[in-house]
Design a protein around this nucleic acid. Sequence first.
DNA 1: CGAGGTCTTGAAGACGATCAACAAACGTGG
DNA 2: CCACGTTTGTTGATCGTCTTCAAGACCTCG
Lengths: 239, 239
Amino acid sequence: MPNSLLHALELRDTLTADERKAVLRAASNEIDFKTGQDIVEEGERPNACSLVVSGLAARCIVLTGGGRQFTALHVPGDFVDLQSLLLKRMDHAVLALAPTRVARVAHAALRQITVDFPHLARLLWLMTLVDGAIHREWILSLGRRQAPARLAHLLCELFMRLQAVGKVDGLSFSLPLTQAQMGDMLGISAVHMNRTLQELRREGLISWQGQAVTIKDWQHLKSLAEFDPAYLSLEKAPR
Amino acid sequence: MPNSLLHALELRDTLTADERKAVLRAASNEIDFKTGQDIVEEGERPNACSLVVSGLAARCIVLTGGGRQFTALHVPGDFVDLQSLLLKRMDHAVLALAPTRVARVAHAALRQITVDFPHLARLLWLMTLVDGAIHREWILSLGRRQAPARLAHLLCELFMRLQAVGKVDGLSFSLPLTQAQMGDMLGISAVHMNRTLQELRREGLISWQGQAVTIKDWQHLKSLAEFDPAYLSLEKAPR
DNA sequence: CGAGGTCTTGAAGACGATCAACAAACGTGG
DNA sequence: CCACGTTTGTTGATCGTCTTCAAGACCTCG
């Protein structure tokens, strides 16, 4: 159900009753993906956008030579390919990192929303703008932070985003990623990812066993990462 | 004049006469910035968006400790802060990298466009989506390419973007950047930037003297970078 | 129980950072 | 137009981060 979408939108602004109805009307069928499955393929021209209802998804680009880079991570309430409404062609694939349920919202329905509900349209636009702000933080991390700060920053970001959609338990959350996959987000090798992780564990900043991540020292983690959550726009404001 | 905006929009879709008029009506005053001046400051809450009319601008984030990272480069026809319409607060500064003329478009006028001209609104949205696509390519470069390929990719991108707005002369264009600034985009030090540049020169891929960049071997530059311009959406399509 | 994936560790080497010095280009004022 | 100071470009040497290769431990699941 697109309740997760309603929730994500209402994190950032208030919806009218009509707008809520329009959102609910736009949603169509839901599909389940297994870990590792492609939700959207590179080169595809979708006629619907995919909204994560539960699970975890990532945008993925592969280089000739085998190098892989994840360019975004998506939690419940996120569209994984809202840009395809206007960009048409997918320039990257989207992968399920865990068992993931996705709701499809037809392009036609989204386009109609831009005509009938300008404010709602601006909120959809906003969601892609938040994606952009997150991209810029990743660029900063990849360009100017070294591995421990990069990892710390990503964990801070994930914690805040998961908290916003009610997917944390105190200071713990579930992160169904292998270390190799985490390396592919941080732009480091799996081996170095492992050593960096051990460093943060040794410093008592986090624990990470199996899929359970716990933040053990939020203050230090935050300052190591120079993390400031403002870029996530997790606040209500008239948009 | 926002002719540069009209041009940028019409690169990607056709406008009606009314839409063209609405664009022209929305523009207000123009301002000149000198090299190095802030066009928008971090933390600011602009009430207008800034459109590059001529010159060159970059989004810039500074870390405590002096590290600096540019997260985007903007050529004529680009908005440098269109996201501020909905994100409100600037999470980074925007800097003029050369003498730059900027046209201000009031947030109120843009918001009115989202109500009166849904199709035009989608094209504005599209411009931020292209920014996002470029961000993802930078993430890929910073994460998985080494310095020579990173530089090659940025030069390919810049060439295509400048060509689209008529700012190239054959295979040459003007790039008023210091090597240190270029390093701040590629996530490398100024010294390494210099050595990487010399490598591309030595291989006969480019020349770069003063502010004049010339691509001497487009095919090899492109293949070194694994460059595919599709992500720039430089084609007309109904949006 | 075996097989494949994941995690962990060690060692060698590549890529890029940093420090330092100097050359070249530029802008400004005399 | 030249003298000067400042910024930018260039080069060498050293050091640190991260990669790669390789091997073994652990773990999960059929």
